[in-house]
Design a protein around this nucleic acid. Structure first.
Lengths: 150, 150
DNA sequence: TTAAGTGCAAAAGCTTTGCGGGTAG
DNA sequence: CTACCCGCAAAGCTTTTGCACTTAA
């Protein structure tokens, strides 16, 4: 994420905290700063490991709690993927993903045509639609190579 | 699932087992039969509970192992959703989902227009695309009501 | 001052695995 | 016969929670 967008996201933390009447703690800021610099859709544990580099005393529990709060604030998104551990994405605007069914890798996929899909009408289900994302499921290049080698 | 499709799926179990040189066990068949009759995208534990009704001695471990095998056979799909427990879907053909970000409900969504989306070219990423599914993320009717009540 | 947050350690789920005995092909 | 599977129980992971102390505002 570029410096300007990063800065803006950090300001949003201040705003959302004030709006909710919650304090801005050093730990929450560190978690947000850290994940803004990662682009692998990290798990909570990966975030924790990365936060330790800049703040060696942070506990795992705090990272879990901070991630929850940041998701509530709308500063992060909890990803949908077939694996068993929660993963987080600092890109909150709707975009699309390549999902590897072998190794569970999740990779951003940019496609103008997919962005322009008109959201369908979900009101007959009483459903309040927030965003539309396309999952492109298949096998990633790394797993394909591994298969050919074996 | 209608009777004919259900029957066909059970025959596929025999075929895929033979193709892999694996035996068709009563337990695997029971797990498949059970999940074909559920349409709530159940978790492994929910499948286990349902299998117990027709086969009271099945262990949880066997259900987990059977579900894995059935996914390998392509008779089930592991769902993508924001929650923390694995959930399974006997509908293996690509279709779309309403995903509730509050309660994690996953509901099938039929839409002809979404079915007709042309898959993008993912070859530049070295990615072998298998299918395209749209996630419609938002808040389901049950959660909306709960919110209005509070 | 005070509501909220933090670290620690323990608990709580969900899922996987090692093992001895059983079974499909 | 042989490879694979089953049930059981234990272990493994990820995530949540209770508690005493600290901190942002």
């Amino acid at each position: 994420m570029d410096a300007e967008a990063r800065q803006h996201r950090l300001e949003l933390l201040t705003d959302r905290s004030a709006a909710s009447g919650l304090p801005v703690t050093a730990q929450r800021r560190a978690v947000l700063e850290t994940i803004l610099d990662m682009n692998n859709h990290p798990s909570a544990d990966q975030v924790h490991a990365a936060v330790l580099a800049k703040m060696p005393e942070v506990s795992r529990a705090t990272v879990y709690r901070s991630l929850d709060t940041l998701v509530d604030f709308g500063l992060l998104v909890r990803l949908c993927h077939p694996g068993r551990v929660a993963r987080f994405d600092p890109r909150t605007s709707a975009h699309h993903h390549l999902i590897c069914l072998r190794c569970d890798a999740v990779r951003d996929f940019e496609d103008e045509r997919l962005n322009q899909i008109d959201p369908p009408d979900t009101s007959s289900h009483g459903f309040a639609l927030q965003d539309l994302r396309v999952q492109l499921r298949g096998v990633c290049s790394a797993c394909l190579e591994k298969e050919n080698t074996t």
